Amino acid sequence: MKLDLLLIIVAVGISLPGSEAGVTEEQMWSAGKLMRDVCLPKYPKVTVEVADGIRNGQIPNNKDSNCYINCVLEMMQAIKKGKFQVEASLKQMDVLLPDSYKPEYRQGINTCKDSTVGLKNAPNCDPAHALLSCLKSNIKVFVFP
């Protein structure tokens, strides 16, 4: 239900007059907040402070944090069953990011395309940690809800 709401909000935001250049940063963060609000309650050991740290690029490597990251990445359609969904990520990037972010994110996504290869998703959501760490290392303007 919340994912449907997110998609509606993003679609409406993109189709508003004057928004032909893509979403604004405000719209991007609003969409991210919805994802965060869905995933945080699923992982009670991940506090708001830990989630804020992840958003700021401090990515802990433990089961709860990794699975929270996995939840958000799944909502973004960036990862599915521990596999990086490169084409879906590129499409979502076009929908969820302002135009000024896109060239660097496109390059980062392509650089990290193999970051989940050989990693098992269960039980610790390791591919999500590997993917987000790779993206953070390869994209100057790091964005994560």
Score class of each variant (00 low, 15 high):
V12M: 13
G57F: 03
G13V: 08
M76H: 06
A11E: 09
C39L: 02
E104N: 10
D4K: 15
A51P: 07
D126L: 11
M75N: 08
D64Q: 14
N62G: 06
N138M: 06
K42P: 04
E26P: 06
V48F: 02
V95N: 11
S30G: 08
I69F: 10
G53F: 04
V95T: 11
D126G: 01
N56M: 04
K140M: 14
L6C: 02
I54H: 02
P98H: 10
G82L: 09
K140T: 14
C67S: 01
A128I: 00
K42Y: 04
V86Y: 00
Q77L: 14
G53K: 13
E104V: 07
K81V: 09
S15W: 01
R36T: 05
E49D: 15
D126C: 03
D94Q: 15
I69M: 09
W29E: 00
Q27W: 01
V48D: 13
K91L: 11
G32F: 09
P41L: 07
D64C: 09
T116V: 08
P145A: 05
S65N: 11
D99M: 08
K80Q: 14
S89T: 14
I8V: 15
I109R: 08
L40F: 07
Q77N: 11
Q107C: 08
I59E: 05
R55C: 05
V86K: 12
E25T: 13
G57I: 09
Q92M: 14
W29S: 04
I14A: 08
L97A: 04
G18F: 06
E104A: 14
E104M: 13
